[in-house]
Simulated scan of single mutants.
Amino acid sequence: MTEPASLPASLAPWVESVVGTIQVARDASHARTNSQVWEVTSRTGRYFVKVAPKAVFYTRETRAYGEAVRRLGYANAPALKNSSAELLALTLTAVDGEPLKSEASPARRRAAHEQAGRLLHRFHDALPNHEAQTEAANAVEATVAGLEKHLAAASGHLSGTEADMLRHLVSTLPGLRPLLAGLLHGDFWERNMLWNGQRCALIDYERSTPGPLVADFVKLATAVWPDHPELGTALFAGYGRTLSAVEQQALVAFAAADAASALAYGPRHGDTHVTARGRRTVERLAREGLR
């Protein structure tokens, strides 16, 4: 058994029991302190090993693989090779492709979004609406209840008028229930769409949880679609339906909550991209809503 330098000694024996002797290991973590991901190669293939930062993320991701990911089809998502609750670790098969980039050709980017919409619909349908309604209602309540904490943390980046606007928009959420519900991906945006030139695959399910389906569209609606509305059109063509009028209202409210969260998180962690997304959303909501 080998002990690759980039794979912790506490993790390597378990990984090799799953995939065989490791030939190559590479740190593939995201640029944040709690990300622990490695790409490993053995005689049996190429894999990714992921250690969840918290037990709740491990539970969410293993549930997603057990209940929903298999619905996406071969090569459209990784497969769970094995998992360890003790280590909070998962070994996943690798799928071809790189995270979708904004500089991809317009035609390929549209194709990727349309395929991603089809995959997301399959994922959402893994949990029927009636089974997800209680947790969706809880998610709405948590969004409303958590707003003041985010606004307090973001106070240096919001005017009083802007904060009141966000409060008003988020306060409309309870009146919009019940929203269509299912199993959310939880982090649905281009970073988690792998594109190999012909096919889109979805990855990263640690934030998957039951909730209102519209919540899965917030990141794209605030960060991508303002400049590229054609990508929203393509995604919903793949998804098989557009948002209802009530879901459109809910999308605005969830975007307002996301902006407050982004302006609380981004500056504190030095994440300029998250901060910019939050700031831009606030300005756009103040100017025109989220159409």
Score class of each variant (00 low, 15 high):
84 S>E: 13
174 P>D: 08
264 A>I: 08
71 R>Y: 14
77 A>M: 13
133 Q>D: 06
187 D>N: 09
142 A>K: 12
173 L>E: 00
3 E>K: 01
65 Y>F: 15
239 Y>G: 04
251 L>Q: 02
191 R>S: 11
57 F>V: 09
105 S>P: 14
217 F>L: 10
253 A>P: 02
218 V>M: 03
197 G>Q: 03
132 A>L: 08
30 H>M: 13
169 L>V: 07
28 A>G: 10
270 G>A: 09
283 E>N: 03
20 G>H: 05
258 D>I: 01
242 T>M: 05
212 P>K: 01
268 R>W: 01
111 A>Q: 15
262 A>L: 03
17 S>T: 10
56 V>C: 01
78 P>H: 12
195 W>Y: 02
179 L>C: 08
238 G>W: 11
80 L>C: 13
153 A>P: 04
108 R>H: 15
149 K>Q: 05
181 A>M: 03
125 D>E: 15
107 A>E: 14
73 G>E: 13
92 L>K: 07
270 G>L: 03
49 V>K: 02
81 K>H: 13
112 A>G: 13
78 P>T: 12
20 G>F: 10
135 E>T: 10
134 T>V: 14
243 L>K: 06
169 L>N: 02
36 Q>A: 14
285 L>W: 08
53 P>A: 09
111 A>P: 08
49 V>D: 04
7 L>F: 10
221 A>L: 05
116 A>S: 14
59 T>R: 15
245 A>P: 13
83 S>G: 08
90 L>P: 00
47 Y>P: 07
102 S>A: 14
138 N>I: 11
148 E>S: 09
107 A>K: 11
6 S>G: 05
226 P>A: 08
133 Q>W: 05
137 A>H: 10
157 H>G: 04
106 P>G: 11
163 A>F: 12
146 G>N: 09
191 R>P: 00
247 E>N: 08
5 A>D: 12
115 Q>N: 12
4 P>Q: 07
59 T>K: 09
170 V>I: 03
214 V>H: 07
172 T>F: 08
87 L>F: 09
250 A>Y: 06
57 F>I: 04
217 F>H: 08
231 L>H: 00
154 A>L: 11
162 E>Y: 04
12 A>P: 02
224 V>Q: 03
234 A>Q: 06
196 N>P: 07
150 H>R: 12
92 L>A: 10
28 A>L: 14
